[in-house]
Amino acid sequence: MDASEREQYRAAIHGDREAFEMIIRTHSRTLFAIAFAILQSREEAEDAVQDSLVKAWKMRWRVRDPEKFPAWLCMIARHRAHDVFRRRRPVPLSAQIIEPVEPEPNGSSALDQQLHSALAALPELHRAALTLRYFEEMDYRTIENTLGLTNGALRGILGRALASLRKQLRPALVSTD
């Protein structure tokens, strides 16, 4: 993190609106990725990001170390997404995943459906790491920073995530090959 970035975070913490808006421009996609990883829904993820940005602005004074500001933002987004996720609990998870797939009963959608359920079966952290990787093409270090992981942990996480997906999708993969 360079000095200008840190200065930006510091200004945002001290109530500089422009700095905060700049942070929104640079970081909202990351937040979206995190929320999406949890919710698996673009609309809900967008709402969650909006909510968490508002909350972050209101609670920004709680952050002491400007360097931790991005991680803190991510944490807020994750909590917010969890809240949303919890609230929709009454709707069964499997049903929701199956629902949008049903109207498209072709081959590729079958693979999609399999992929969805495989992704849903992954631990949340794995899903988040994957999402960040594929959405933002982030390198390992940035992902680790964003998710608050220690150095080197991500390599195992992504490896396991890919392996798990691969195992579940093997039949489909073979057929496509």
């Binding site: 990787r133 390198d139 390992y140 390599r155 992504l158 490896g159 396991r160 890919l162």
Partner: peptide, 12 residues
């Protein structure tokens, strides 16, 4: 191998 492959995939 899973970790290695993943890392290779993501250029790490």
């Amino acid at each position: 191998i899973d970790n290695w492959l993943a890392a290779d995939l993501y250029g790490e």
